[in-house]
Design a protein around this nucleic acid. Structure first.
Length: 460
RNA sequence: GGCCCGGUGGGAGAGAGGCUAUCCAGCGGAUUGCAAAUCCGUGUACACCAGUUCGAAUCUGGUCCGGGCCUCCA
């Protein structure tokens, strides 16, 4: 089965053929750790987590790096604000980011390079670029000279004249060309800085990714991912830097970009006050539901985040876990592969909505099946498939008990006691009492399900 | 202004020249002590206007509407 991916570079779906099948390399732009991650930050993390799972299923050795940007003007501002070193800010929010992503079922990357650990590599790359005439130093800055790279603009499909014409920022006087961008900038004593051949300074935004990719993954990698907004200028600039530093070698074979998350039809912004933090969403919804809400739309489509969408994702999981609940007493058949239709959907440019439909089809089959062997097989297929999407891996009873959300209602023991009392009443045909207990539980948000093998319950 | 995406049934959301997407919600039925869950069935879809075609929601052209990027941004 072949994987095809939509490559932003060609604006077309392409068959994925890694340069080295023995070592598939992928890099995703990670967070700038200066505050809590919002739901828009979570989308690439979740989407590319699915891609990594899929790649691992089909290739023996996948090396996945996701960086942590821990030097940046917003970080500096936050640190100055609170009167603490930047490390205080970045360590705190990196930890929070990782915890939040874990709650969304995002597996940790193989490598998580930090910008501040790669200053020497960045300096080396700048020296190389300067030596080859692609960059120059001016007034404590190092700038990349865009006209030195004829292919500039290929990813975002814009030409230089347009960019200059549309430039919204005034051009710094030390720039040789208006489109030149900063690789390194000088630091004042109140700002974090590192010694360099051009004085004490700090890196510009784009260089870190180029340096870290070169160091950890190689001069040329298979996949580079991130949000669409990074196409220009960030990824365009990465291409320019890396290609020029590497004598024209292909930097990235497949460029992947996820669509934006809007909130109630509007772009998230601090001024509107509609920024939804993953940290806050996790207080009210299971991480798995948030994850599924993100995967319920195709990754390249814009996603409108709503409370209703999240509620729907939870209901979907109820249905899926409900099917697994019906298979609880069976072991999944061993040696199970994911469902072919499910896999085909994911292999078609990560069509998670279609893959989900295959999962529902399996659930329906499982709900109808009577043969234990068939049920066992379906359980195996269901679990193997959903694992590629990073869902349905927790204990079904834990899911129906409310998952990882803090509960302030009845405890599981209390519920079980009430169910036992109700079943005693039912055995005595005292249905008035039985219904009374059920109503009482319903008042606490507990729904009961009487089945052949006893009474089960769920919250919400 | 330049470049690039979209407009699918009550909601979400795939697909794609002729064949049930799927899920949520609704309705009818089966099942149930009553429920819940489940199963079966079911309704008004493809922005608009032309064109290509035996046949278009799917292709082409145009129109309208919405969104994104254009050096802060996932």
């Amino acid at each position: 089965m072949t994987l095809s991916l939509y490559n932003t570079l060609s604006r077309a779906k392409e068959k994925f053929v890694p340069a080295d099948p023995g070592r598939v390399t992928m890099y995703v732009c990670g967070p700038t750790v200066y505050s809590y991650a919002h739901i828009g930050n979570a989308r690439p993390a979740v989407v590319f987590d699915v891609l990594v799972r899929l790649l691992r299923h089909q290739w023996p050795n996948v090396v996945f790096a996701r960086n942590i940007t821990d030097i940046d003007d917003k970080i500096n501002a936050a640190a100055a604000d609170q009167g603490v070193p930047i490390g205080t800010i970045t360590e705190k929010f990196e930890k929070i980011y990782l915890d939040d992503m874990e709650a969304l079922g995002v597996l940790p990357p193989d490598i998580d390079p930090h910008a501040t650990d790669h200053i020497p590599e960045m300096i080396a790359m700048m020296e190389k670029l300067i030596a080859d005439g692609h960059a120059y130093a001016a007034e404590g800055h190092v700038l990349f000279n865009v006209p030195s790279y004829a292919e500039y603009g290929q990813l975002s499909r814009r030409d230089r004249d347009e960019m200059i014409a549309g430039a919204r920022v005034e051009v710094a006087p030390y720039k040789k060309d208006p489109s030149d961008f900063v690789l390194w900038k000088p630091s004042t004593p109140d700002l974090p800085g590192w010694d360099s051949p051009w004085g004490v300074g700090r890196p510009g935004w784009h260089l870190e990714c180029s340096s870290m990719i070169e160091k950890h993954l190689g001069r040329s990698i298979d996949i580079h991912g991130g949000g669409v907004d990074l196409v220009f200028p960030h990824h365009e600039n990465e291409i320019a830097q890396s290609t020029c530093a590497h004598g024209g070698d292909t930097f990235v074979k497949y460029w992947l970009h996820n669509g934006f998350v809007n909130v109630d039809q509007e772009k998230m912004s601090k001024s509107i006050g509609n920024v939804l933090l993953v940290h806050d969403l996790l207080k009210d919804a299971p991480g798995e539901a948030i994850r599924l809400a993100l995967l319920n739309a195709h990754y390249r489509q814009p996603l409108d985040w709503t409370d209703d969408g999240l509620a729907q994702a939870k209901r979907m999981l109820d249905r899926l876990y409900g099917a697994l609940r019906g298979l609880a007493d069976l072991d999944p058949a061993g040696d199970t592969a994911p469902d072919p239709e499910f896999l085909a959907a994911l292999n078609d440019d990560l069509n998670t909505p279609k893959a989900l439909a295959a999962l529902f089809d399996l659930s329906r089959q499982a709900n109808s099946a009577t043969d234990p062997e068939e049920k066992s097989r379906l359980k195996g297929v269901l679990l193997a498939s959903s694992n590629l999407m990073g869902i349905l891996q927790q204990d079904t009873e834990a899911w129906f008990a409310g998952g990882d959300i803090d509960q302030d209602g009845l405890s599981a023991d209390q519920i079980d006691d009430l169910i036992e009392a109700r079943n005693t009443a039912r055995a005595e045909k005292n249905f008035a009492e039985a219904d009374h207990i059920r109503d009482e539980l319903a008042g606490q948000g507990i729904t009961l399900e009487d089945g052949a093998d006893g009474t089960k319950w769920r919250r919400g």
